[in-house]
């Protein structure tokens, strides 16, 4: 993380993620300050490529989505579709020369569900090596 410009993460998460209440969310905001933007979503399958693309364009250096465990989706297949979409989006951004690792998906585990904070930490850990995005609107 460079001193002058912190890497930022836009994190969408399924509302069924454990310990993801408004208060949990605010503690994460306190912890990471401006480095994180959190978006609870009713279903991870709601996140479409456009969300990632616009996020990278205007909001953050990295965008991730946390889904519920496989088989748990209230809409049956939302998380599976999220997975496919992330894959597709990766391809898109790679094709324009931006690293595909700027977006990602974390599927919670059925056996060992992890809380939002833990998952966020993991993701932060995961992306720490990335550089600030060149496409992110500098005037934001």
């Amino acid at each position: 993380m460079s001193e002058e410009k912190k890497l930022t993460l836009g994190l969408f998460y399924c509302q069924h993620t454990p310990e993801s209440s408004e208060l949990d969310r605010q503690s994460l905001e306190e912890k990471y300050g401006k480095s994180i933007r959190l978006f609870p979503v009713p279903c991870s399958g709601r996140i479409e490529p456009i969300h990632f693309l616009r996020a990278l364009e205007e909001l953050t250096d990295v965008a991730y989505v946390i889904t519920c465990p496989e088989g748990e989706c209230q809409y049956f297949e939302g998380n599976l579709w999220a997975k496919k979409r992330v894959q597709r989006t990766k391809e898109i951004i790679e094709s324009i020369g931006l690293g595909g690792d700027r977006i990602g998906i974390v599927m919670n585990s059925k056996e060992n569900p992890r809380s939002l904070a833990v998952l966020a930490d993991e993701i932060m850990e995961n992306i720490i090596h990335l550089k600030p995005s060149p496409v992110l609107n500098p005037y934001r």
Binding site: P42, C43, G71, Q74, Y75, F76
Partner: peptide
Amino acid sequence: VEALSLKRNP
């Protein structure tokens, strides 16, 4: 074959 699953409709 466990092809059917039930969920409450959101």
